[in-house]
Design a protein around this nucleic acid. Structure first.
Lengths: 137, 137
DNA sequence: CTCACATCTGAAGACTTGTTCATATGTCTA
DNA sequence: TAGACATATGAACAAGTCTTCAGATGTGAG
């Protein structure tokens, strides 16, 4: 095993790149989930990465709400809420129930619910440990 | 309690909006975490929402790696990796250890590690239950 | 049937983000 | 010290995203 200080050059997938620890690189590569899975996961995170969408989802954690109430709770325009819900609905993260002219939305993805719970539990504890912007070294 | 079918108009925070269930709206509003917390949480999700950054973090789950190995594992240019790491470092999600001219990066945020574990555990099981794009009704 | 209402939609502009290329910084070796 | 090397950085362009506005759709009441 060529550990530590020798730099080798491999061409694992067509594009040659210098690697320091070829074994670990190969091992990590093995375990890396397929690109599609990672892309899906990144998409989910992306849906949670907007403050307004996040507010909507947090509001829905406790039960369904109609569009206008969601707008009131989150302080957004009804149009903005509708757009956001459409996106979330397309990704099956929320689901709608229609009652006459009202539309009641609820969280439809237990996986996302867990992510939200986990994330919120931590930010409540962490308060200000994330000083945004800092650049070390 | 004015439940069900009467629509009232409240001006809770200055901006008047029609609400259907004023009680629930007020209750949900109560429990909603402060805006700053939500913004921080959204930022974290945002950092995980890029496939390339996600790859880097997944690669680091098993231990530290230097920049060039990260580039090799994830198939990105070293410059791109460096830029991504800078962002992650600024948010204290990864930390660098320098050894001569090499820089070894590791996951520095246990909170993020949990989010990653949770997310990956699920995508591995869920395969294709997230048919990307679908729009119901 | 007509009106008021709740929600949805499309399009356009402002803004944010990622990638690339060129170059800078700092470290090791000869 | 000179030169090779690993990483970092800045600037610029391309691409994607959010918000808003105006108007469309569908539903219930009179």
């Amino acid at each position: 095993m060529n550990k530590s200080s020798d730099v080798s050059v491999t061409a694992v997938d067509g594009c040659a790149l210098k690697v320091v620890d070829a074994d670990r690189v190969a091992a990590v590569r093995e375990r890396m989930p397929p690109g599609d899975d990672l892309a899906d996961t990144a998409d989910v995170f992306g849906l949670l990465s907007d403050t307004n969408r996040l507010k909507l989802l947090v509001a829905l954690l406790e039960g369904e709400l109609c569009v206008c109430d969601l707008a009131a709770v989150t302080g957004q325009s009804e149009s903005a809420v509708s757009h956001a819900l459409r996106l979330l609905r397309a990704h099956r993260i929320v689901a709608a129930r229609r009652a006459g002219r009202m539309a009641y939305y609820r969280l439809a993805d237990p996986h996302v619910r867990m992510l939200l719970d986990l994330a919120l539990a931590h930010t409540e504890h962490t308060e200000a440990i994330h000083p945004e912007r800092a650049g070390d070294r």
